[in-house]
Amino acid sequence: ATNIVGKVKWYNSTKNFGFIEQDNGGKDVFVHKSAVDAAGLHSLEEGQDVIFDLEEKQGKAYAVNLRIK
């Protein structure tokens, strides 16, 4: 899925991951530091509006192509 809109539920910059809540009511999506770095960001803030693509690997969904809304 592409261009999914959501809000950062939480992001832990020490542990380098967090979760994004989808605006469409879907399951929360894992986001890793690598996606944050690829977006040219240092971190994510709770409540921040983002747009992302959804990829699945080994049955787990995660956010890629992250951008600030």
Rank of each mutant, 00 (worst) to 15 (best):
F30K: 02
K27N: 11
A63C: 04
I20E: 00
E55T: 12
F30G: 02
Y11R: 01
K9D: 01
R67L: 07
V31W: 02
L54I: 14
G26W: 11
H32Y: 07
G26R: 13
N3W: 04
V36T: 03
G40T: 04
L66C: 02
V5A: 11
V36F: 05
F30D: 01
E21L: 14
A61E: 11
G18C: 02
G26D: 09
V31G: 00
A35M: 07
E56Q: 12
A38G: 10
V36L: 13
S13M: 09
H42Q: 09
A63M: 02
S13R: 09
V29H: 06
I4L: 10
G18F: 03
Q48Y: 07
N24G: 13
V29I: 08
K57A: 11
G40N: 09
D49L: 15
K7P: 02
D37F: 15
D23I: 15
G59S: 11
I51F: 13
S43R: 09
N3T: 05
T14W: 10
V8R: 00
V50I: 11
L54G: 02
W10R: 05
K69W: 03
E55N: 11
D28E: 08
G26I: 08
D28G: 04
V31D: 00
K7C: 03
G6N: 01
T2N: 14
R67Q: 15
I4Q: 12
K33A: 11
Q58G: 14
V5T: 08
L54H: 07
E46N: 14
D49A: 15
L41E: 13
A61K: 09
A61G: 12
A35S: 14
V8K: 00
V29T: 09
G18Q: 01
T14I: 12
N65V: 03
T14P: 08
G6V: 00
V8F: 02
A35G: 04
F19L: 05
Q58N: 14
D37Q: 14
H32K: 03
I51N: 07
S34E: 07
I4R: 13
G25W: 10
E55Y: 12
A1T: 14
E55I: 12
F52I: 04
E56A: 12
